[in-house]
Amino acid sequence: MLKELKTALAELAIPEKAAFLPKFFKTGKGEYGEGDLFLGVKVPDQRAVAKEFYTKISLDEIAELLSSKYHEHRLTALFMLISKFEKTKDNSVKDEIVQFYLNNLEGINNWDLADTSCYKILGRYAFENQKDDLLINLSESEDMWHKRIAVVGTMHYVKKGNFELTKKLVLRNLFHSHDLMHKANGWLLREMGNKNETELIGFLNSHYRKMPRTSLRYAIEKLDENLRQDYLKGKI
């Protein structure tokens, strides 16, 4: 089955896209995606392959895909894992999938891999089972991807109108050295504001002066233009 899936992806590969993606995902020496390889398969095509195979493929085979050097193998693996998690009504299967996810974090090592999967699996599970520590513990890791998984994982909480964990994790890594964390923090604050602007403004009024500029710009993107300018100019 794994061979069939890899063949299906290979047949959808676009050489020009394979040449472009390493630059887009910063795979050069010392960059955050260093060493990642690409087949050049469009994301909608990966989703289609995942939809075809997710019921047929085992967690062991998904683990093998997550250890692949090819980015599309790992992303397609996560699409299938999400489908397995969302479609099952068996809580023991959900438990198994979440533990599997945590055991295979090494393969979730770029922003799209983290952002696509973390809130749909880990965040949802943590919210529904009152297990905030799953995300809190990851936020304390030294690994940046773990930290990003933690804060983006709270997206499920935000969608449910629960903002406290998002604010806690944003503050915990507010001054992280990497721009990708600044973007993630700002993004989640913006999503919080989309759900409840009063919550966002309350957070900003307490913290915006010390926030990294990237986080602030992301957070205020959807606010009224005059209010945006006041935050950017430090007038509040």
Rank of each mutant, 00 (worst) to 15 (best):
H182W: 13
F203S: 11
L5W: 01
E191F: 14
N196L: 07
N205A: 02
K17C: 03
K235N: 14
D143R: 13
N205K: 15
K87D: 15
T55D: 15
K6W: 09
S206C: 07
K42E: 13
R213G: 05
G234A: 05
N110W: 12
G153C: 10
C118P: 00
K26V: 02
L135S: 03
L174T: 12
T88R: 12
K17I: 10
S67T: 03
K120L: 13
A219Q: 01
L216H: 06
R209N: 05
A63F: 09
L59C: 10
T55G: 15
L227P: 05
A48P: 12
K3F: 07
L21I: 03
D112M: 11
L165C: 10
L81F: 03
E16A: 08
S215I: 06
T166H: 11
L171Q: 11
L12W: 01
N205S: 07
G107E: 01
A114G: 02
E16H: 01
L180D: 14
R213L: 03
K94L: 03
R74F: 11
N194W: 10
H73N: 12
L59D: 13
S215W: 08
W111A: 04
L171P: 06
R47N: 12
P22V: 03
Q99G: 14
N205V: 03
V41F: 08
N91L: 14
K56M: 10
R124V: 09
R47C: 06
A48L: 09
N185C: 07
R47L: 14
W145V: 11
